[in-house]
Amino acid sequence: MNHLIYICDDDSHIVRAISMKLRKAGFDVECFPDGFACWEKSQEQAPHMIITDLQMPRMNGLELCEKIRQLETTRLIPITLLTGKGFEFDHDEYMQTLKITNVMVKPFSPKKLLTQVQESLNLTNDVIG
């Protein structure tokens, strides 16, 4: 079974670009326009990984991460946070408290994102396994 990845961003172009890249690499992808929609779906079906933007309407990336870490089924899944913020965003703090696996600063390379997704899933599988 392919890995299921949820992509969450209010910008349709970014969602489209990431989903194209991941689908071609053999992942199952589902896209959401905001954190809330992603969280609702995660309760029904837990993904293997989540890639989310930081600034989004209704529920932002950090709120989503918090909710995801509270759900038993998604407590340990890798999360990649996409952000347009630079120095003002304290990567380390959130990476520790919310156990965010990766932070990618926009504009990012889909190729690098794909590599990180592959690494995160293998790494996490090893740890859990």
Partner: peptide, 14 residues
Amino acid sequence: LKTPMSGIKAYIEM
């Protein structure tokens, strides 16, 4: 500014 730039960069790389 970064949001459209991210889209452009991602598409061009692909």
